[in-house]
Design a protein around this nucleic acid. Structure first.
Lengths: 334, 334
DNA sequence: TCTCCTGTCGAAAGCGCTTTACATGTGTAA
DNA sequence: TTACACATGTAAAGCGCTTTCGACAGGAGA
């Protein structure tokens, strides 16, 4: 391995000067040139561990995400958020570190990140009530998709999303609107359900208990079950708003299987706008989360914290707007 | 920051002994216990930079993937492969490092990885003819989805996949079979096209020039264009085999838009089995790539190289099998 | 009793870098 | 000429850890 010593010897300067030249500190132009020549000639690459050790700055950001959903990195929502995050932080030369799952223990993961000396942490996790507990020393961090007691989070405006969905349905003449809820321990699930109720009330509609069904963790299986329960009702809803696209897609399938049509008999609206949404039949009307933007905002917030450690504990929360994407799964009530 | 010195002082042993205790070297049980107590008490976390500097082992694996496709981390194929890769390497305590793109220059990326001191590199990239050029010092690496001049790669059995597709079509009575090719600078594209031709010949069918259209980089846009060209033919094919699901999906859409039906008028078969495939109408029959397995095999190969540096340059290639997933986009020719 | 071995432990060097504090040389002003 | 300021370069310490090598104690064998 070629080190700074080799460059020093080869260029005739001391290692201190070499280091300064490499870091754009004050050295004469002549020295810089000679040193850079040596660098090129010897194919020198600085050693980041040594640098990190000396400066206490790793230029790495740790990513922690929920592994319990079974998708891992391939999660349709997470991966896009992370991509948005990555695009922004790499502008500032940070690399991303994905650490091994440590038996699901947040505490262990945090320790590991501490061990790695990351400059910041982005946690992207929809549920779970335990948080990255800080030890005596703490790392700047940001939470995505869920506000926490810890300072700093960015998430979608879930309530507005529900309002958008309900409004759209009501505008199309629907009053018998059901809601397939996301798990009620998740922030998004709670907010979307609350937003749904509020919006219904705002329209003078009452929210019937039997029209409120739990779809669990946003999976197709959960959506399926929920929809089956709704179809079993004597007085079926004419529209259902699902708190997630996967659940909405499953719901559509169940409706079709039962011999009814979407949207002619029942209108369906989802949440997320995953890639699949536009490809199913009928294309799904849904509330779109701006995944890239969420990632980007989280990145901005985290870099801010990293650079201004003083107010690292300032609790900023950033809500990113959602929008309604009208496709063909909603129809005016006859 | 609490260091090994603090533990030494607190436990009454030297830092050498502390280090040994932490690394399960020979120390008396008594010493180990005392030291571990101190570790717990002081919330000690070892510093990985220091350790890496001393041992020249980082326990990080660098991931390099193609950013030019526009998906980044959210790429439907890549993300699943990487997830499979991650699942395996984390069993051995490796973390994954995603480095910033450096102006698309492989050479820069490689230098950066060298700078980071990763123990190994996984390159997942379907095309591009430049490779991670090694400098004088080289890092164990593995190439995914494309064999290279560099030793070590794992990829799907693309030719067999084409054979599977063609056989299935022929078994269903088709003879007028078109192929929407993947870009012919990509390994997969070349292999699938070659496999297609071989299979056709094996059945005594000739491959017509006008039935061989280029779909570009596996995108829907490319598939769309290719299918339009096929439909413009006087003598239309009764079946089309696309070298990628996205292209197949676009093709189906074009066919429907033209007033024809899938599979009644034209059968379609894809390659990949992305998640979308089962959700479109009609559900797509396709050649399935085992993304998780590819990732896992790559991980196994890389760890092998890392652990047996001697034969790092042994050129192993691993081909992972593909399978045909029959759904409803193929029909027996009337 | 003395010698030799074995098992534990510690001093110190070293991994590759940054940074402080100081030395040196040059030019300028008095 | 002397005095001083400034620009440039360097020696050395230190970041937190591993590892070699030697010291030492205690037990076994003669």
């Amino acid at each position: 391995m070629v080190t700074i010593y080799d460059i020093a010897k080869h260029s005739g300067y001391s290692i201190a000067t070499v280091s300064k030249a490499l870091n754009n500190k004050n050295v004469s132009e002549k020295a810089r040139l000679k040193i850079m020549d040596a660098v090129d000639e010897l194919h020198y690459t600085p050693n980041s561990s040594a640098r990190t050790l000396a400066t206490n700055k790793s230029w790495m950001i740790g990513i922690v995400f929920d592994e319990n959903l079974g998708f891992g990195l391939a999660h349709p929502f997470f991966s896009q958020v992370i991509e948005g995050f990555k695009k922004h932080v790499e502008l500032y030369n940070y690399d991303l570190l994905f650490v091994s799952r440590h038996m699901g223990l947040q505490q262990e993961t945090y320790k590991h990140l501490l061990h790695r000396g990351v400059d910041g942490i982005a946690v992207i996790q929809s549920f779970g009530d335990d948080e990255l507990r800080k030890s005596n020393i703490s790392i700047p961090s940001v939470y995505i998709d869920r506000p926490t007691n810890e300072p700093g989070s960015v998430y979608s405006d879930n309530r507005s999303g529900s309002r958008l969905a309900v409004n759209h349905l009501v505008e199309n003449g629907h009053t018998k609107i059901a809601h397939i809820m996301g798990d009620q321990t998740t922030y998004a699930g709670i907010e979307r359900a609350a937003g749904f109720k509020d919006a219904m009330k705002a329209h003078g509609l009452d929210v019937r208990k039997d029209y409120l069904v739990d779809g669990g963790y946003y999976s197709q299986a959960g959506g399926r079950e929920a929809m089956i329960r709704l179809l079993a009702l004597d007085d079926k809803p004419t529209a259902v708003y699902a708190a997630g696209d996967e659940m909405a897609i499953a719901a559509i399938r169940v409706i079709k299987e039962s011999g009814l049509r979407v949207p002619e008999d029942i209108s369906v609206i989802g949440f997320d706008d995953i890639k699949l949404a536009q490809h199913i039949d009928p294309p799904l009307t849904t509330v779109r989360q701006d995944k890239e933007l969420i990632g980007q905002q989280a990145a901005i917030m985290l870099l801010e914290k990293i650079n201004n450690k003083e107010d690292m504990d300032k609790d900023v929360k950033k809500m990113v707007p959602v929008s309604l994407v009208k496709r063909q799964s909603v129809q005016r009530l006859a």
